[in-house]
């Protein structure tokens, strides 16, 4: 599943940190500038002010982007160690570079709500990688899986949003877990009951953290034993980038 994910860190020369992430057919470029001097009305005495701005691939942003911004902000706020940078501004700008040509639709509801869920993993991963590249202090890292509940014969089928294979989609979910196994994000669209939610929870946890999120420190770099979960992929990406950063130290 992380095979169709790809990421590059620090792709742009000017911002403090940047990252490009592709998943579910979406490509998102995120840049982070910070800590900057906050405007007087935004300045907060005890923590950093976080500004999230999302720009669509085409045209200027509207209500769908504003709604995604508030979701992403509430996901990122507990991750960033904001009290470490009081009275400052952390500026996160996300540019959607490409969108898949055909959009999946819900059985009840519109394509827009599915697009919103399918886009969330790319946005969340790009923002975190860019924050790390900008050396913003963070409490943890979290990964987000987007899942679709497919109508089946009695059994609740949960697959990735891009893997429905033309099946009738009942609901879509975006679920995010921190490295410690805590749920930080749950967005859903469509219809669902307790049984479906339970199945989604199990599948999301499996996709995000195979190792169950025990929270112990692991050697980053993903050299020994490639992990197949999203957290393994995210840690591998960060590790790979850090290795490149420390090349000047030499092998000795």
């Amino acid at each position: 599943m992380p095979s169709h994910q790809s990421a590059q860190v620090n792709t742009l020369p000017h911002p403090d940190g940047s990252a490009t992430v592709s998943s579910n057919g979406y490509t998102v470029l995120c840049t982070v500038n910070g800590p900057l001097e906050a405007q007087r009305r935004d300045e907060q005495p005890l923590e950093a002010f976080i500004e999230v701005h999302i720009r669509p691939a085409n045209g200027v942003g509207g209500p769908p982007e504003r709604s995604l911004e508030s979701t992403l902000l509430s996901f990122l706020h507990p991750i960033i160690l904001t009290p470490a940078l009081p009275r400052s501004l952390i500026q996160i700008t996300l540019q959607i570079l490409s969108v898949p040509p055909t959009a999946q639709t819900l059985r009840t509801g519109s394509a827009a709500s599915v697009a919103r869920i399918a886009l969330l993993p790319s946005l969340a991963h790009a923002a975190q990688l860019a924050l790390l590249a900008a050396r913003i202090p963070m409490r943890t890292v979290a990964c987000v899986a987007s899942l679709a509940v497919v109508e089946g014969t009695g059994e609740v089928g949960v697959v990735g949003v891009g893997e429905t294979g033309g099946g009738k989609v009942e609901a879509v979910h975006a679920v995010g877990y921190s490295r410690q196994g805590k749920c930080l994000l749950w967005e859903m669209s469509g219809r669902g009951d307790g049984r479906g939610m339970k199945a989604v929870e199990g599948e999301a946890r499996r996709r995000c953290l195979v190792e169950g999120g025990k929270g112990e420190d692991v050697v980053m770099g993903g050299v020994e034993g490639r992990r197949e979960d999203l957290m393994g992929w995210l840690e591998g990406t960060i590790g790979g980038w850090l290795k490149g950063q420390q090349r000047w130290k030499g092998e000795s």
């Binding site: 742009l12 911002p15 701005h53 045209g59 200027v60 700008t93």
Partner: peptide
């Protein structure tokens, strides 16, 4: 034709 510079380019371009 819409051309906009944003903080994506550099932090001194304001939204």
């Amino acid at each position: 034709i819409t051309a906009e510079l944003s903080p994506l380019t550099a932090p001194h371009f304001e939204l």
